[in-house]
Design a protein around this nucleic acid. Structure first.
Lengths: 220, 220
DNA sequence: ATATACATGTCGAGG
DNA sequence: CCTCGACGTGTATAT
């Protein structure tokens, strides 16, 4: 890892063209080839290049190329404030709790939160237009598709489950098919669309959901 | 700007919970309150907090809080490799050129690339469910909606134009309405959905498109 | 390698 | 403030 703190001018050419007039920035050159340029404000890099890249340095000019896509990032260094290379090691991976996959797993263990009597047949059941999160049958035996969102559901989520329903309904033996979107919250337009297209909206509280699969929490 | 290079453990609690076991990272504390943690790989920070924040430091423990949202980021420092504060100045803003609007404008100038005889009536024509990129009539006089994508079109793009078509078709005088997605490339699932819902896929080459509106290139 | 969907997405425009 | 679509999206996962 190389950490360069310098007054410099930055140019990017690829999916679009950007230029950043001279100013002080912190630039990280990582060993995997990725480069990121941090300005003085904002959590995100103002410019970047994912690895793998080829980095050429010619005096005050640093050119980072990504051969795969033809993109290039150019750093014209005017004044170096610091330029240090560090030998660093890090074997850790980021552990995340609360991703969609996890929410989906929790719901799979607590189907009654969605609807009493709902039985899970398959998770991530593939169709030609995408995977159905939870492929189920309801208490009456009807095929029921559940689309899970970890954040507020918008109209696109409703459209997604409609798309799956249409695909599944191509098999006449499975019809009729119910469609449900399960999310902690719903945008008004998502509800309107769901109503119009006969899609059900089930709101769940992630905290309660965790409680449902942690029996210890509801002993008394 | 403070640049801390250290072996540390990281925790984030907010929209989800994450933990990153001890390892070497580069952490930037910016004067606007934003903080970002860079691992040894990847263009994006592995953890971050947008400003404004409150940073408390208590020995080896650094706690960054975002009162507005209740999020917090915790850095437990085990070993400091470098810890430097820089007084930096940067008044520049990022200049960009070449976005989707440009592609849309190019297509508007070269409608025959989409289909011979297609006439543009309006760009960004508003509907209740969003703006139609290119609102046209075809050679036969049929209303034709074109959704433009600068990059590969996925199923969601097809759904988008279907939604617009449904909205426009609410006016019986305009029916039937054709729907087209124009993109440099199409995901297989997008083609499947388009076929099923009677949406046409038109692939264009951005380079050729530029040529089409550059008469100089086709003088001979 | 390709295809697909997630993401603490972030960001900005428009109502 | 909310809603929605673009983004140089990047990134991981499964085929």
């Amino acid at each position: 890892m190389r950490v360069l703190v310098a007054r410099c001018e930055i140019g990017y050419s690829g999916r679009l063209e950007t230029r950043l007039a001279p100013g002080d920035r912190v630039i990280l050159f990582k060993d995997d080839g990725s480069v990121c340029v941090h300005a003085l404000k904002g959590a995100k890099p103002i410019n970047y290049m994912p690895g793998p890249t080829v980095v050429e340095e010619d005096g005050e000019l640093i050119r980072v190329r990504r051969p795969a896509s033809g993109e290039s990032l150019t750093v014209l260094v005017e004044q170096v404030h610091a330029d240090t290379r560090f030998a660093l090691t890090d074997g850790a991976e980021l552990e995340r709790a609360g991703r969609e996959k996890e929410i989906q797993a929790l719901l799979a263990e607590a189907m009654h939160v969605i609807e009493p009597g709902l039985r899970l047949l398959e998770r991530e059941r593939p169709t030609d237009v995408g995977p159905v999160d939870l492929f189920c049958r309801d208490a009456a035996g009807l095929v029921t598709l559940v689309e899970v969102k970890r954040v507020r559901a918008v109209a696109a989520a409703v459209e997604q489950v409609i798309r799956y329903r249409e695909q599944v309904e191509r098999d006449p033996s499975l019809r009729p098919v119910r469609a449900i979107v399960a999310a902690p919250d719903f945008a008004p337009q998502a509800r309107v669309l769901a109503e119009a297209r006969n899609v059900e909206c089930i709101a769940f509280d992630p905290a309660v959901l965790r409680g449902e699969v942690e029996p210890a929490l509801r002993l008394f």
